[in-house]
């Protein structure tokens, strides 16, 4: 816990992680009722990654996410109720009910979109980083992708190009051990995804993704490097997902009690609470207050999202183009 953070920053980080956890836990429950359409991929368990990286970013910095994107969206500041309404397919959702869980985006917050195509975000943030460079700005771009995407050519091309063009771009590989039902131990040919950074001429580190402070520190170094014009970095964050690839995944490919053990011993929220309270940086009461507030926020979001109207038939045909004669 070498990073020096103010209590305000610590409380914010906790609130972000707690919000993501509550959002995802609630979705897990609600999805089972059958009221939520489509595919939902939950981020619970990985909160420290989103919160640790996003703590260094501002609205003008861009991120691209993947199918497991709720956590990145919340950490980047996308409205929680708008997200919930979107996931319920309601007109009031951040994308008007046209995107759903896998396509939540808010460009005003620098959130370039969750993405249903594995690895597709990497070239996009190379583009937002290129845009910043051409505009003469020091904005940083970050892509979050999984161990599965780490095997995608799109990611390799983007990493190579980011290095060649010296772009302010950070590649965050969230290695949760499984690409769908395939273990990364098998599918990733090298020991660590971070090892691949060397092939693209950029630094790469592997860090403990259960530890908010470890992520925060590594991300801080990468953001500083990028912002100061020294180029891209790769951060491999090792963590786990508490739920299946998608909701409904029976996860028979995982070891019995694998998640249970990790939850009990490594959980990022528990670790954060213990470390900050033991060090006297935050009080349990402060954290409890956040818990209460977050639960209220999620309850309110779900209640409103359920009651909201669905898109109208006319919405089917709108927003395909800015203009189309």
């Amino acid at each position: 816990m070498s990073t020096q953070l103010s209590s305000e920053q610590l409380l914010h980080a906790y609130e972000v992680m707690r919000t993501i956890r509550a959002f995802e836990e609630r979705l897990h429950v609600e999805f089972a009722t059958g009221e939520i359409p489509g595919f939902v991929h939950l981020y619970a368990g990985e909160e420290a990654s989103a919160a640790g990286v996003m703590a260094h970013l501002r609205d003008s910095d861009c991120i691209a996410s993947n199918h497991r994107g709720h956590g990145h969206c919340i950490a980047k500041g996308v409205d929680v109720y708008g997200m919930m309404a979107e996931i319920y397919g309601k007109k009031t959702g951040v994308c008007g009910g046209k995107g759903g869980s896998m396509h939540i985006a808010d460009l005003s917050k620098g959130m370039l979109g969750a993405n249903g195509i594995v690895g597709a975000g990497a070239p996009l943030v190379a583009g937002s980083a290129l845009a910043a460079k051409l505009k003469g700005r020091d904005d940083v771009s970050v892509v979050f992708f999984g161990d599965g995407a780490s095997n995608e050519g799109a990611v390799f091309e983007a990493m190579n190009m980011a290095s060649v063009m010296n772009l302010a771009c950070i590649f965050v590989a969230e290695n949760n051990g499984y690409a769908e039902a395939t273990a990364s131990k098998w599918s990733v040919a090298c020991d660590h995804i971070a090892d691949r950074a060397a092939g693209f001429g950029m630094p790469g580190v592997t860090i403990d993704g259960y530890d908010f402070f470890a992520v925060h520190e590594a991300a801080g170094a990468a953001v500083e490097r990028a912002r100061s014009g020294q180029g891209p970095s790769l951060i491999e964050v090792k963590l786990t997902r508490y739920y299946g690839h998608f909701e409904g995944d029976a996860q028979t490919y995982r070891a019995p009690d694998e998640v249970k053990n990790l939850r009990e011993t490594r959980d990022c929220l528990l670790q954060f609470r213990n470390k900050t309270t033991r060090a006297g940086l935050l009080s349990a009461a402060q954290l409890d207050a956040i818990d209460g507030r977050v639960d209220g926020l999620i309850e309110d979001a779900v209640r409103r999202a359920k009651a909201d109207p669905k898109p109208q038939p006319a919405d089917l045909l709108s927003d395909v183009y800015v203009s189309y004669p």
Binding site: L124, G127, A131
Partner: peptide, 15 residues
């Protein structure tokens, strides 16, 4: 790197 630079153009266009 067609994915890389075409994708980068797409990303830049959103910015």
């Amino acid at each position: 790197s067609e994915i890389g630079y075409v994708g980068a153009a797409v990303g830049a266009a959103t910015q």
